[in-house]
Amino acid sequence: MKIVKTGMAGSLESSDVLITVDSNAGKGREIDLDSIVQRQYGKQILKVVNNTLDLLSVEDIKVRLEDKGALDCTIRARLEAAVYRAAGSKTYPWEKLS
């Protein structure tokens, strides 16, 4: 999927994450993580982000995560939503994500 504009999803509530994604044409993935549990789960969060982006076939993207302790499933859901919004896509590849 190709990122063509800014996309945002989530919130700053406890146990949620606010994710902003933007285009990064030809420059790969740029992930900026700011988490209250960075030391404990920073690596795990980056893994979830990269896995999700792999599933969605997103190569070039800027991702900013403001994490307030979201679980993996939440991070994944928020990232998917942000990417769809940023791709201006109306057809979701549901089967790829299940």
Partner: peptide, 19 residues
């Protein structure tokens, strides 16, 4: 009760929709 976070989420989402 982290109500500032709640308010900020609402303001950020609105700003996003306004572009």
């Amino acid at each position: 009760q982290q109500l500032t976070n709640r308010i900020m989420s609402l303001l950020r989402i609105r700003a996003y929709h306004e572009g």
